[in-house]
């Protein structure tokens, strides 16, 4: 791989080249072993300060980033707040400038508003890593999904990957679409018409409202979490109907290929988008995704920390 990493920030997969994605995956591969050692710690990021700046509740992603950073000996500070409380007083930019003034190296940010990490990246010098912004991108989730697929299938190009669920509000779907299509996979998105964002096919994906069509011939099925409160917004009539039409269960699995991979970014609504027997079944790689998340995040932290160039 000839690619060199030259980015201060990781805001999304949209702007990355296939080579850059490949470099992250390769780097992650070499870091994966660290988490399997009895003493899970290397000095790679010793002396680096990392702030986890989370404006939305998160357990999985925050813990994964925190462990990734700790296993590389970085110093971590956690800030958890809500976007609404911030807007009443200090602006996001002001808060970020204060953090910057404390001389931190990397800010990992999750925010309910699309574009918030970009706003930060434009205004402060530490590296910004997007840990999920609104419905925009969740690049490390996309990367760990691709990493997991590649571990099993040994390639990405030519694979049929179906992403099923609430596409409209999903940053996971968008990052997966950008990453997978850049690496040559055929991506199908499936969900209720009310949860399908307009003109999504322009991203180079196939759209279907028929889950059977999405399952048939798929090498990978990535089930998205459905947010239960969408029911009150007339986006679908009931959880029951959603589960019947778009939930993955044993019955619908009859259409699947014998070597299909079942993925889910978590947290799972058991019995809604996926039944327990499928989530815990032989095709499921859901917990492997979680394990791989740490390796991918270690790789990302390592790569951005090596970029010396900083904005003024």
């Amino acid at each position: 791989m000839a690619a060199k990493w030259a980015r201060k920030d990781l805001l999304g997969l949209e702007t990355l080249s296939a080579d850059e994605i490949g470099l992250i995956l390769e780097t992650a591969d070499s870091f994966k072993e660290i988490s399997q050692r009895p003493i899970k710690k290397v000095p790679t990021l010793r002396g680096q300060t990392i702030v986890l700046f989370f404006f939305e509740p998160s357990t999985r992603t925050r813990t994964s980033f925190e462990l990734a950073a700790k296993r590389m000996s970085a110093d971590i500070v956690n800030i958890q707040t809500s976007a609404s409380s911030l807007t009443k007083g200090e602006t996001l930019r002001d808060t970020a400038r204060n953090i910057e003034a404390m001389k931190v190296n990397i800010i990992i940010m999750r925010h309910s508003s699309s574009g918030a990490p970009q706003l930060l990246a434009e205004s402060v010098s530490p590296s910004i890593i997007n840990a999920g912004d609104g419905s925009h991108e969740h690049p490390t989730q996309g990367l760990l999904d691709i990493f997991t697929i590649k571990e099993h299938k040994k390639k990405i190009a030519g694979l049929n990957v179906s992403i099923i669920g609430d596409i409209a509000h999903s940053r996971v779907a968008r990052s997966n679409i950008w990453g997978l299509t850049k690496l040559g996979a055929n991506v199908t998105v499936c969900g209720p018409a009310t949860l399908m964002p307009p003109e999504i096919e322009k991203l180079g994906v196939k759209v279907t409202y028929d889950i059977k069509e999405a399952i048939e011939g798929a090498d990978v099925i990535n089930m998205l979490r459905i947010q239960l409160e969408r029911q009150g917004q007339s986006l679908f009539p009931s959880i029951r109907e959603y589960a019947m039409k778009f939930g993955l269960d044993a019955d619908k699995m009859k259409y699947a290929k014998k070597d299909v991979l079942i993925m889910h970014p978590g947290p799972i609504n058991r019995g809604v988008e996926i039944t327990p027997e499928i989530a815990d079944g032989p095709y499921s790689v859901i917990l492997e995704q979680v394990t791989n998340g740490i390796a991918v995040r270690m790789a990302v932290l390592y790569l951005v920390s090596g970029v010396k160039e900083r904005i003024e």
Binding site: S114, H136, E137, R174, P197, P198, I200, L203
Partner: peptide
Amino acid sequence: GFISTKLGL
């Protein structure tokens, strides 16, 4: 439209 889809807005 497409741009709102892309930006997740």
